[in-house]
Design a protein around this nucleic acid. Structure first.
Length: 489
RNA sequence: GGCCCGUUGGUCAAGCGGUCUAAGACAUCGGCCUUUCACGCCGGUAACAAGGGUUCGAAUCCCUUACGGGUCACCA
């Protein structure tokens, strides 16, 4: 048994969406678990839709996720190049071989003619298959067609009878009768290979041992197997992963909100959360624990625990899981990840002094326990970075409209003014004392204080909040609130 | 439409002929904790698509139907 080699082979025609990310993840997990090699190959043979920008986007999304590849773009490898557009010689060689063997032939039909016939077939309820009319063109006919300016594509000749059985790790043996397959194009008239051909040529020349890809490719597989056989190459093991569907059970697309990895990143999700969640879509661990850091998933990952039913992704669970990692990850890391979100909202400067960094760290530590994404850290902490905030409507009604709150706040102000230590514990003691001295419940003072300091009715523990905010700012905000209330009255 | 795959609670998902009066997680609903919110903890609601077989016994095997998805491109 040779080495385990798997590959993720996206086409750079858009961003990496979560379905692709999940496929990449499973390939990566399998490679890491089996001590195999994970190859990244860019399938950029569609001239019209492929862009270098998409390729860069996919590469950086994979990097952000932390799915590192052993061979591929930016790092090379022994089986390169890793862009199909640079592998033309391989395809031409294989195509010539098929041509010589009589298993491929030139087809001069134009795309317009083809699609017209397809339409007609559909209309009359027939299967839209290529009729094989160019299969037996004579040399003279071909010359004439070429003189007409037609550039031929190359088609693979499907053996007329029999069937091809796909042996799939997830789905077992799946048979396809040859008469439902038609002669498909392997080299386009522009000289570039078509998917089913390029894919086989590359997988076999790159020594790919296991092909893990989405189930949508299952019905392409008999065609590919026929190519492997015609070329005399060894078959890889096929593993067709269940699809990931949008919440309405349809195929994932842009109109379903965030579906690209980049969008999840921008919404403040962490790679750990996304990866852990994605791993659970189609695969399940043996035990009951679902929160699993990547190394643990690698340790447990086996193909026999991959399911066969399509999954609908659920942002709620993803969010919950993200919240977990937001709290469990090392604080300094989370601070660094949160920084861009704070900066983007103009809450903190690009350049930070050590003391500002320390302040931000304390804020993040306080706030992260009650939010689930990095973006929410920014939402929940604005008042730490600006004195200019409004009092919540609900808070105004509940806490600032009671008679006597102004003096209560004033009393609190005078108490903490005398404090030498501004640690949470010291502040809390003085509040407890005050409430006892005045004979009012602690909540009577605490709630209005929170509103005075943050403008909100909910948030971190009040005494921690005050401590982080600092004595000076706390006093300022308290006295501002007293003034505000008196003005309203 | 042809071919292929699939169908366990709202969602993910365990289950691979008896231990299933069907696990766990998210969500949801109650309760506890608490200065608020969140966390955490405790508890509740909620599922084997339908019908036929096979078998002493089926969520698990077979068939049919229904539903969902995929695919039938000079896209991957």
């Amino acid at each position: 048994m040779g080495d385990i080699r798997v590959r993720f082979a996206p086409s750079p025609t858009g961003s990496l969406h979560i379905g692709g990310a999940r496929t990449a993840l499973f390939n990566w997990l399998f490679a890491r678990r089996q001590n195999g090699t994970f190859v990244l190959r860019i399938e950029d043979t569609d001239l019209d839709r492929s862009t270098a920008e998409s390729a860069r986007g996919i590469v950086s999304a994979l990097r952000w996720l932390g799915l590192d590849w052993d061979e591929g773009p930016e790092i090379g490898g022994d089986y390169g190049p890793y862009f199909q557009s640079q592998r033309l010689a391989h395809y031409v060689e294989a195509a010539n071989k098929l041509l010589e063997q009589g298993q491929a032939y030139y087809c001069y039909c134009t795309q317009e003619e083809l699609s017209e016939r397809r339409q007609e077939a559909m209309k009359s309820g027939q299967a839209p298959r290529y009729d094989g009319r160019c299969r037996h063109l004579t040399k003279e006919e071909r010359t004439r067609l070429e003189q007409d300016g037609r550039r031929p594509a190359l088609r693979f000749h499907i053996p007329p009878s029999g069937e091809t059985v796909v042996s799939d790790v997830i789905r077992g043996e799946v048979a396809f009768a040859h008469d439902v397959l038609d002669d498909f194009i392997i080299m386009k008239s522009n000289g570039l290979p078509a998917y089913n051909f390029a894919c086989v040529v590359d997988d076999s020349s790159m020594r790919i041992s296991h092909v893990l890809r989405a189930e949508e490719h299952l019905s392409n597989t008999p065609r590919q197997i026929l190519i492997y056989q015609a070329l005399g190459r060894l078959l890889p093991v096929f593993v067709h992963l269940p699809m990931i569907l949008a919440p309405d059970r349809s195929k994932l697309s842009k109109r379903h909100g965030a579906t690209s990895v980049q969008e999840f990143q921008e919404q403040g999700f962490l790679p750990e959360g996304l990866l852990n969640y994605l791993a659970l879509l189609g695969w399940s661990p043996e035990g009951e624990e679902e929160i699993m850091p990547l190394p643990e998933i690698v340790r447990q990952f086996t193909l026999d625990r991959v399911g066969k039913t399509a999954a609908i992704y659920d942002t709620k669970k993803l969010t919950w899981m993200n919240g977990h990692y937001l709290n469990e990850n090392v604080l300094d890391g989370v601070v660094n990840q949160a920084l861009p979100f704070l900066q983007q909202k103009g809450m903190v400067a690009k350049e930070l002094s050590p003391s500002q960094q320390e302040y931000i760290k304390r804020v993040v530590e306080l706030v992260r326990t009650r939010v689930k994404t990095l973006a929410e850290i920014a939402d929940a902490s604005d008042y730490f970075f600006s004195d200019d905030f409004a009092y919540e409507e609900k808070g105004l009604r509940k806490h600032f409209s009671k008679p006597g709150v102004d003096s209560l706040l004033e009393a609190a102000l005078h108490r903490i003014e005398r404090l030498e230590s501004f640690e949470p514990q010291a502040i809390e003691e003085s509040y407890r004392d005050l409430s006892a001295d005045l004979g009012v419940g602690a909540g009577e003072i605490i709630h209005p204080t929170r509103l005075a300091l943050s403008g909100r009715t909910m948030g971190p523990g009040l005494f921690e909040l005050m401590s982080v905010l600092g004595k000076t700012r706390s006093l300022q905000r308290l006295s501002r609130a007293v003034q505000y209330i008196r003005q309203q009255a």
